[in-house]
């Protein structure tokens, strides 16, 4: 018996929905991916109307939560660590702006003490991060 090729019955995989599948994948990965970012501390920022945009590349963050826990570079630090840490950062970038991400309910004295340490480290440009509020 002789096997013969079937006459070309144009067998094609439909490609029109390929983009849908690709989008599905990209959305899936976007949702599930967690980037290694500075997590900081869970805080509720105060609101402001006069807030200005601060250039990101010049920012170093200090996080202070409701209870007064201080975090720099995702490490919980004591107020005494702020001076050497920030002095080192200032040597790397003298134009650095220290951004306070502080919970609106935090006691002011923690912020005040941190600012005193910043003065010692000669890091004098600060910014108080706020949530924009329409006003």
């Amino acid at each position: 018996m002789e096997l013969r090729r079937k006459a070309g019955s144009g067998a094609r995989i439909p490609t029109s929905s390929m983009a849908d599948i690709a989008f599905l994948l990209i959305v899936f990965f976007m949702v599930t991916t967690i980037f290694k970012l500075e997590q900081g501390l869970p805080i509720t920022l105060p609101r402001s109307v006069a807030g200005e945009k601060i250039p990101r590349e010049r920012i170093a963050h200090i996080w202070i939560d409701k209870l007064g826990t201080i975090s720099v570079d995702d490490l919980v630090v004591s107020v005494y660590d702020i001076e050497p840490l920030m002095a080192r950062k200032m040597r790397e970038n003298p134009a650095l702006i220290i951004s306070f991400n502080t919970d609106a309910q935090a006691a002011y004295q923690v912020v005040n003490e941190s600012m005193e340490r910043l003065k010692m480290a000669n890091a004098l440009r600060v910014s108080f991060t706020t949530m924009p509020e329409e006003g």
Binding site: S48, A50, G51, E52, K53, I54, R56, I59, I97, S99, M115, L118, K119, M120, N122, L124, R125, V126, S127, F128, T129, T130, M131, P132
Partner: peptide, 15 residues
């Protein structure tokens, strides 16, 4: 895309 950080800038007095 980066979301801008909004803040109130201030210069501290030098020690």
């Amino acid at each position: 895309t980066t979301f801008p950080e909004i803040g109130l800038p201030l210069i501290l007095p030098s020690k």
